[in-house]
Nucleic acid binder design. Sequence first.
DNA 1: TCAAAGACTTAGAACTAGCCCG
DNA 2: CGGGCTAGTTCTAAGTCTTTGA
Length: 742
Amino acid sequence: MSGDQIDGGSRFNDSHKHKDKYKEKEHKHKDHKKDKEREKSKHGNSNHKDPSDKKHRDNEKEKMKHKDGSTDKYKDKHKEKKMKSLDGKVKKENGFASPLQVKSEPEDGFYHSPKNEKSLKRERDDDNDSEFKPKKIKTENDKKAKKRKQDEDIKPKKTKNKREVTDGKKKAKKEPEEKWKWWEEERYTDGSKWKFLEHKGPVFAPPYEPLPSNVKFYYDGKHMKLSPEAEEVATFFAKMLDHEYTTKDIFRKNFFKDWRKEMTAEEKAKLTDLKKCNFTEMSEYFKAQSEARKAMTKDEKLKIKAENERLLQEYGFCIMDNHRERIANFRIEPPGLFRGRGDHPKMGMLKRRIRPKDIIINCSKDSKHPEPPPGTKWKEVRHDNKVTWLVSWTENIQGSIKYIMLNPSSRIKGEKDWQKYETARRLKKCVDRIRTQYHEDWKSKEMRIRQRAVALYFIDKLALRAGNEKEEGETADTVGCCSLRVEHIKLYPENDGQEYVVEFDFLGKDSIRYYNKVPVEKRVFKNLQLFMENKEPDDDLFDRLNTSVLNKHLQELMDGLTAKVFRTYNASITLQQQLKQLTSADENLPAKILSYNRANRAVAILCNHQRAPPKTFEKSMQNLQTKIDAKRDQLSDAKRELKSAKADAKVRRDEKSKKTVETKKKAVQRIEEQLMKLEVQATDREENKQIALGTSKLNYLDPRISVAWCKKWGIPVEKIYNKTQREKFAWAIDMADEDFEF
DNA sequence: TCAAAGACTTAGAACTAGCCCG
DNA sequence: CGGGCTAGTTCTAAGTCTTTGA
């Protein structure tokens, strides 16, 4: 069944975003929710339990209990290996802060000291479904927490990091060998995310610098000096003048409204029409600035770089449980104009500048908490170790909370990521059962069950997202599975020689269009017809279903199962299958990598990961073609030379001419290889025109599958993962061997 | 019980560094 | 040696799912 996953259909034939189509209806479907409510109460009392439900649940529970005892063929092997690696080496704590290393190995073994016995280590492999349930960790007491305090005086090891940056000549140096292998340690089981956390707080956006007086703003043709507050907001608009956004009505309206709020009374009285505002001098000024920046001397650039590096070293890391970990986004988002995606009702609104009094700091009690800038105060300093964030604030557009969190290479993110794939692998074990069940449920006499079953089928087969309800008018009108409306699908009893075809056409996350025509089982088709009966186009297709109902059901089918697990599972299993299918042993390295990319691409198509074709696409394609042609010419020249050299050697029969033949032969080979490489590159790029591989690679594909594939075919992982990716997937690179099976 | 708040993952676009070519 | 072009990096919006609290 999972073979279905890569049918892909005709999805990419069309321009990938089509906003206009959806424009007119704007808020036609306003009263969905009410409709849903009504519907619900109408059918509300028909819920009788499917007895099989409970049975399944119990089965699953039973399985879970045994998870640790189960074995499989890889387990033992891995164990063996693990021991080796453990015995072999005394682990250092993370390489970057040497004082830390000393201090962080308290005799009392506070954190997980490397000296602890292996019993303390995490199971290295998880093949055995060892589900990623955190294993026991001893709970610590304050005496030890105190100990942590010493960490305060850890200073980043400047020299080393500096070196890496400044003489950043390629590959110069190996990373320090002792990278912390958090995956070999215990996890917390008490719901805490850390015991010690210390950081320097956020870096605020630089303050506004007023424009030089020769850069003027004109209203209705006349020069007008703006107050600094109004001027700042005006510059936000000026900076975007070249962007399509600024031509959109909603954008302009929102912008103008918010801009006026920043104006003085006089300004407000005077500036009443955005059309009469002339920002061109400002815009020119900024363009000139960015030119100037590009034209800076090497020295100046170096200086900036050094300053950035300093900032990174100071603010870009935190100490979490004895380790210096990289922070993902330590800079506060600067003020500007909100750019939503798609037809966003709030585009153009002013995104406020964040000040210290908006900021909540999270760190441990026994840490030295960051000081707010002089003369300011934090909103709050709290000590919540049940969460992973270091800093948070509330954003003014949607009123949602934003966070500063750790880098994907950190333990806290890595563990979660690993766990995600383990959950997906557990789904693999019971997916057949679940599929059988939802096939059954298509026949249920309860509408809500049939809807649930059809929705789940879509989520499984087409890798659709769950589709939470969204607040009307707050965001672009996009949908996922549970929020599909009647207008988003069309039914064809017969289409292009196939029976029971469903055509999907809707805007999903980020207003990316999902277009697909898929044949479905008759029963699904009939159900869909029924769901659509007597409904308006803007009514919900699944009016008796929402994500929380669906996830509650999934939870009963398997512990930890939610809708998104299907995406992860289907993506990873597809990669694995495709790799198996597409890789052939006799191909050379570039061809193998092409195969990898094709497998990756199959997943990206399944998950509908699209991108706007790069602006320079056509040109770069052409460039490549030119290169290929040149290489072809070069090849035929080389072949000709080889031929004549051969002829020559035949006549002369001496060592020297023989040697020439060899050289020429080599040259031909080399050029052939280069040509091949270019051609492969061209194919790859063409096929990738509107498909984004990165998202699936980063978020959906169990990295151990890729690592195993690399090991199996002797491909350097660097060909598949760049440096950042290798850091994120360090756990997988370290632990997967060539026969890892997802 | 359910809506809102909160936390965290996933996403494409914008930006940038540094490589390669003429 | 500069300029054009990617590949890699950064940015932050937009999802999912969980938790909270009325």
